[in-house]
């Protein structure tokens, strides 16, 4: 004899597993600090690669000036300026990534807890049979 209540709970769980649950369960398989740490590392890599592209484009844009004035140019000053902009953009972007990863983790954890509640309920209903 089918237990309708159990079928409904299991259907919702299966639907969750195939939908948002895939991402949520993957996120919750990490410790919170590991997940956020990985997000920060990716953010730092993204900013670094972007900054390299921007520097390359900037140098290419002013290529003639660079070639003419390369011996009179204050290279250390230029490097410090680029370094300052890089650090500012890195800090801002990493902060935003931290917040986004934190919120994602909390949302995933909340939903996975509800999913586990349903797992326990299914077990209970199975035993009641």
């Amino acid at each position: 004899m089918l237990n309708q209540e159990k079928v409904i709970v299991m259907t919702r769980m299966a639907s969750y597993e195939e939908g948002k649950g895939k991402e949520h369960l993957r996120i919750c398989s990490y410790f919170r600090s590991d997940y956020i740490g990985a997000a920060i590392l990716k953010a730092a890599a993204a900013v670094t690669i972007t900054f390299v592209f921007v520097i390359a484009l900037y140098i290419y844009y002013n290529f003639e000036d660079f070639m003419e004035n390369i011996y009179q140019m204050d290279m250390m000053g230029l490097a410090k300026k680029f370094g300052k902009y890089y650090l500012i953009s890195l800090i801002i972007y990493v902060a935003i990534s931290y917040i986004v990863a934190f919120i994602k983790y909390i949302v995933a954890r909340t939903n996975v807890r509800k999913y586990k509640d349903n797992l326990k309920m299914t077990r209970k209903l199975q035993k009641e049979k």
Binding site: C28, F31, R109
Partner: peptide
């Protein structure tokens, strides 16, 4: 899987 939720 049932009891480990990733939080230390």
């Amino acid at each position: 899987e049932e009891n480990y939720d990733g939080d230390p």
